[in-house]
Design a protein around this nucleic acid. Structure first.
Length: 269
DNA sequence: AGCCAGGCCCATT
DNA sequence: AATGGGCATGGC
């Protein structure tokens, strides 16, 4: 599946579509230069590039990025299982192996609070400015709780400043993060949604991208626009998609989002 | 120029 | 439980 050496991870190109994985909207801290992606997560960084039939991840934190990319997970099996659904054929054929990442919990919570009613380029720039305050490392709950509302406003958080401040304070002063990590399966959403700025959709993104809950379907405006049947509500749509795609529903959702929101929209120009 | 963005909070009903 | 208005900001 993959092999590791000092300072790098190497895997077959068939195991990861780098563009789809990094640009599908689950991650905001990356940039692309000359076909090389630089990725930052927590306090770690790597460079990812495709060369011939192989993908290389160059990093000082090999173990971290093996987990981050979930390289022990067979995502092509998931892709095969999803291919029996006719409506997914186009999204599945639009890219190679999209990998859902395993991202740091606090960073994911704050990033998706920022994502609310916002567009991806601006989400990225806000998060970049936030991390720039800490030498390009995502702040800890304690650090972020000490950032003033004025500073959060200054980097463009808008009306989300208060949410970020409140949730950072909650994470710094209570044991919610540890409770989330150890939560029984039904408990995590309720704990997440008790945080300011975290509703159903943000909670679902955190569950999928940080807590490994692959059966969850975050419903955003794109999923709603493209998947809604009749007068279905968001929660009805969410329940229907989760029921239809089962344990792989999160992957189905990411392929749909990538195909509609990233590829199609990007081609409009 | 105006609509929209990986929505959430809060007041009403 | 379900609906609807308001919301900071800036990308396009």
């Amino acid at each position: 599946m993959y092999k590791t050496e000092a300072g790098r991870i190497i895997t077959a190109k068939s195991n990861i579509d780098v563009k789809a994985t990094l640009e599908c909207g689950q991650l905001f801290r990356f940039e692309k230069n000359d076909e090389v992606y630089t990725v930052k997560s927590g306090g770690n960084t790597c460079k990812v590039y495709t060369e011939g039939d192989y993908v290389t991840v160059e990093t000082a934190a090999v173990d971290y990025f093996v987990k981050f990319f979930n390289f022990d997970r067979d995502v092509n099996r998931i892709k095969r299982e999803l291919s029996r659904f006719p409506e997914l054929v186009k999204p599945l054929e639009s890219c190679g192996a999209l990998r859902i990442l395993h991202q740091p919990l606090f960073e994911t919570i704050i990033s998706f609070i920022i994502s609310a009613n916002n567009n991806i380029p601006r989400i990225k720039s806000i998060i970049n400015r936030l991390c720039a305050m800490y030498d390009d490392v995502f702040p800890t709950p304690e650090q972020l709780a000490d950032v003033s509302l004025r500073q959060l406003d200054a980097i463009g958080c808008g009306y989300r400043s208060q949410y970020i401040h409140d949730t950072a304070k909650t994470c710094a002063e209570t044991d919610v993060l540890n409770r989330l990590i150890g939560a029984r399966t039904g408990d995590a959403p309720r704990i997440l949604m008790s945080m300011r700025g975290v509703g159903q959709k943000v909670a679902d993104c955190v569950s999928l991208f940080a807590l490994g809950r692959m059966e969850v379907v975050p419903v955003d405006t794109w999923i709603l626009k493209t998947q809604r049947q009749g007068m279905e509500t968001e929660s009805q749509l969410r329940a229907r998609l989760m029921d239809r795609y089962g344990e792989n529903a999160g992957y189905a959702q990411q392929y749909i989002f990538y195909y509609n929101a990233i590829l199609q929209e990007g081609n409009k120009q």
